[in-house]
Amino acid sequence: MSYTTDPARIERNWRAITIELDSPRPGRLERMLQRLGLPTDVSRLVVATPALRRSWFVALGLSMLIGLLATDAAKPRDDLFVLLLIAPLVPTLGVAMAYGSNADPAHEVGLATPMSGLRLVLTRAAAVLGFSAAFLALISLLAPSAPAMAFGWLIPSFGLCSATVAAMTFMAPRRAATVAGTLWVLGVLIARGAGDDPLAAFTVVGQVLMAVVAVVGLVVAVQRRDRFDLLAVR
């Protein structure tokens, strides 16, 4: 019995094997995303999102946790207030830090690619929002009083991120996040001062309002999407 294979083919396959062995292996997160069914380009894009660096999350997580533990457990609605006030700012900052020449070393290179800036912004915003939400959910479970209200930050987070993305068509990402975040904090404080309930901003009316902001922000961003493809000198 004789088996013969073209020697050139043997060589070709060996070269392919060495290339495969030498090529860098995607990180654990990237492989996990791919297993969840994300295409390779999107998973790489998500993993390369600057705001998703581990240090960033650790720092934020620790500071929020400490803030939560330091609040007076005798007044559970007060520490809930702190959590609900700060939580939507986490993904908002993340979204601002995931795009633009300040945050992303590959920003200019990205502008030169045929992929639209809006798609990049939204992919990364979704990634940041998804990770932040998962992470905030964990912290919420640790809240001393963890009723359903502890998850009241979810819709406001969507609204605030969406508003930030919309504002990014008018100004630099950092300023956009600052403006949106400031308005948010002011709004919540005003709502608190107006009534007896410290959590006034997170009742049904507030939630619906933030949902509307989320939709409007997205519409504005899509309408003005050309702005994402410009290299603004900022």
Partner: peptide, 19 residues
Amino acid sequence: DRSALEQLYRRHAHWMTPR
């Protein structure tokens, strides 16, 4: 040991491919 992999490959690829 990468060279061992290469040796194993060269010992077996020629019959595995046609099979």
